[in-house]
Amino acid sequence: MATLASAQDSSPDLVVKAISRGIENGRYAPGQRLVEADLTRELGVSRGPVREALKRLAGEGVVSITRHRGAWVRTRSRREVDDTFRVLEVLTGLAARLAAENIDAAEPHRGWLTSAASALERFRDHEESRPLFQARRHFWDVILRIGGNGEVARLMPQIQITLLRVQFQTFVTPRQFDRQFREYQEIADAVAAGDPARAEKATRLHLRRRRESMASLPDEAFGWAENAAP
């Protein structure tokens, strides 16, 4: 991992971003220990920014910290996964509705949407991977950007979404994978058509199905509610 070269770059904010990127690209897996000494060496910073970053991530529910065992990436419990998907269903549905309402407010909007949907479609026949994670996140970022509501974007728990994708990527069946891509296209079509009700309905159905598929997974897919240290 590249070091954070300047004094400005070594701020806790950028250490948080570096750890978040590490989770997204699979360097740090759910349940993995985050050792301060390793992080300071890898990022080229002192322990102060690393400790502050870990505290912030703990506050966001991304890592857990205990006095004697240090920090580790949290594995979401069954209840936490269900709660997160219920929140995402509402927020993402609203984001899609706003995007459909705002699709013609600026000339670039349709181009952004078409490009994001096309980029995502290229991964239809591929397994879960970092490039797919990025294409999927870009698709939703475009939906948020077109919608133009900064508060919805601020409330969207992006790092929690990343954790869910990483934790459950091996449990997605080919049939579920194919259905997800059909649902993405339905969402994109509804937004492009400027149909807010249809866009929200399609998006909420997509998230509800994801939540239901998570609920059917075996217990070993989840962490303990108290997230006991490994």
Rank of each mutant, 00 (worst) to 15 (best):
A116I: 12
E226G: 10
A100H: 08
R78L: 07
G59S: 03
I187K: 09
Q158A: 02
R67H: 07
R145C: 02
L207M: 14
S11L: 06
E24G: 05
F168V: 14
R33A: 14
Q32L: 01
I103H: 13
F123P: 08
A105V: 08
D9P: 00
R110G: 13
V62A: 15
F85Q: 12
L163S: 11
F133C: 03
L91Y: 05
D141V: 04
F168R: 08
L207W: 04
A95M: 13
R21Y: 00
L4A: 12
E107Y: 10
I187A: 10
A228L: 07
A5D: 10
H68G: 00
F222W: 12
V62Q: 01
A105Q: 04
I146R: 09
P108I: 03
N25V: 12
G61A: 05
R41N: 04
L155I: 14
M156G: 01
Q167I: 04
N102K: 15
I19W: 04
D125F: 13
A117H: 11
A221K: 13
P12D: 11
I187P: 07
H68F: 14
E186M: 07
E151H: 10
R56N: 04
A229Y: 11
G31A: 05
A37R: 13
G61V: 00
S77A: 01
D219F: 06
Q32K: 01
E101F: 10
L217Y: 11
L4I: 05
S20I: 08
A58L: 00
G31M: 02
T114Q: 15
D38V: 07
A192N: 10
L205M: 06
G223L: 01
E24V: 08
G59P: 03
L113A: 04
I143S: 05
A202N: 05
